[in-house]
Design a protein around this nucleic acid. Sequence first.
DNA 1: GTAATCAACCGAAGCGTTTCGGTAAACGCT
DNA 2: AGCGTTTACCGAAACGCTTCGGTTGATTAC
Lengths: 346, 346
Amino acid sequence: MSQRTTIVDVASAAGVAISSASAALNGQPGVSNATRERIHRIAEELEYVPSQRGRSLASKRAFTIGFVVQRAPEVMSADPFFGAFIAGVQKAITDSGYVMVFQISPSWELSERLYRRFAAARQVDGVLVDQLHVNDERIGLVKELGLPAVVIAPDTVDVPLPLTGQSAVPGVTALVNHLVDLGHRDIAHVAGRLDYVHSAERRNTWAAAVSARGLQPGVQIEADFTVASGKQAAERLMRLDRLPTAVVCVNDLCAIGLMAGLQAGGVDVPGKISVTGFDGIDLSSHVHPSLTTVKAMPEAVGETAAAMLLELIADPGRAPWTVPIAPGPLVIGASTAPPRSVVTDS
Amino acid sequence: MSQRTTIVDVASAAGVAISSASAALNGQPGVSNATRERIHRIAEELEYVPSQRGRSLASKRAFTIGFVVQRAPEVMSADPFFGAFIAGVQKAITDSGYVMVFQISPSWELSERLYRRFAAARQVDGVLVDQLHVNDERIGLVKELGLPAVVIAPDTVDVPLPLTGQSAVPGVTALVNHLVDLGHRDIAHVAGRLDYVHSAERRNTWAAAVSARGLQPGVQIEADFTVASGKQAAERLMRLDRLPTAVVCVNDLCAIGLMAGLQAGGVDVPGKISVTGFDGIDLSSHVHPSLTTVKAMPEAVGETAAAMLLELIADPGRAPWTVPIAPGPLVIGASTAPPRSVVTDS
DNA sequence: GTAATCAACCGAAGCGTTTCGGTAAACGCT
DNA sequence: AGCGTTTACCGAAACGCTTCGGTTGATTAC
């Protein structure tokens, strides 16, 4: 097993002290341009790559950020968010030599253990906190642990930590306006679990947007983000005395389940009920009828969040700041149409 | 900023040498039970957690395994595989203090760079290689780099590295038999990209299983694993002179797209064509008609793969071995039925 | 009773970096 | 010429752990 080349090899090959080699390689001052170049050239020739381990120990940084996804693996599988989000994170960190460690945790208890281990073992320099709950315990925890953290949440929420994310306000408002413009007057909502801030924001926006158009918010049914829950929501909806003419769903998967449930129950979409989703996942354009929805931009969120975290790590004392991500576009599909009454009226 | 407690603190509090504390804490021999217990107790009191950084440098291990997913973020998002797979990996490694670093790479070029960096910077102790291609360049690369690696692939493939995964042979054979038993004689296949070993295996199994029942394999259409490609496959299918009576798809998403495409073209499923999937994703039971498919068990695969990798890291010289994962169950849905001709014949 | 053996423990040398104090030479200024 | 400054570089001490050779004092063997 041939020994890897270390900075010592580079320094001695260049005939300089280790400290000079280090300074040269890291762009630190105190080295003349001539020797700096020579050192770089020799490092190249020797295929020198600094050992992350040595670096880590000496510089007290792990060159690693942590991402604990607090949800069940099954739910995560279906979620359209992560792939793109992670791709974005990577885009932001790869060049700086950072790497992401990824953990899944179904429960708060496990999450807490993971965060504490991250902090105690100095395994990560900072963490990304996503899927924020109302009164999320994690924000207290990372503060207690002194762990640099960036929160991913709608930019409308107020937390004492750096934050980035997309607000659903423009998107949901656009969806509601689209429905009202089509002639709908009874617009229901299938909500996600309301202890998540982003579901709560969508619900509140639905109510506010409907009211803003001078209408009463319709029925509200609580579901989660899964297809199955959308299907159940359909069944509850169909047991109502009077069906709403439109339903705004918390996300695409839920809307897809809702449509499946309605169709199974003989309710035509959009003939009898219009349905909207949220996220703009790939599948939404392939279901029948194709879904009217709003595109989310998880890659941009991931990239921004990671970039912010790197800044925070470089300057841990920095005061919290927020970077909003531009809202995604409305995608009008075949799942929304004028309500029947309006059609016959005209 | 209070200093973290180090092994030096523990040793001096216990009145022993650092080396003794280290031995005691790591279960190494050379310490009496009495002092071993005392040291453990004191470490507990002081809330000592070993620094991964120091450990890493001294023991020449990173306590980290790498996972480079070689596919586009968009595809990954839709893929049902990763969430559960990663959960399984985590289950296997968490207790040993290991952690997984996760990278996603759309191209071979980037993958190669990432692997080389992993190896050169000693950032990981080993890697997981999934989604094996035919003649996959990665197996040569990890050998060249001397990076311990475990391959995830159907256990029917032959590579000079430790391997685990599920074979699709029992599953696809069961699907084909199910269709033949229903009376189908013309069974087509929508394949995944055939340069992936697992799509190739499914295709070959389809052909073999059909032949084994004394029939000619039907049409074969190449797609990828996405809903969109399934939809396109439907269009190509409908341009055929004679429709097959059944289609075996490479995976669920593709089957869902195929069904959507067929239905949009006015072809009833399963009235006119039966369709089967593969993977048993959540969505498959919620689409209409619900999909006949075979459940995959990605969590078990992840757990096994990670456990194998840890063994390999502990004993790098070990000869390659294979651990097959038991095949998943057949799930019979509403997307398969006897062909019309048989129905009218009876 | 002496030599050999062994368990228990210690001390110090690494691991590969960064960082900081120090030094000699070159430079600028009066 | 004499002084303080700057520049370019060196040496050595960290960082927190593992590991290995060495030193005890007690136990065993004959």
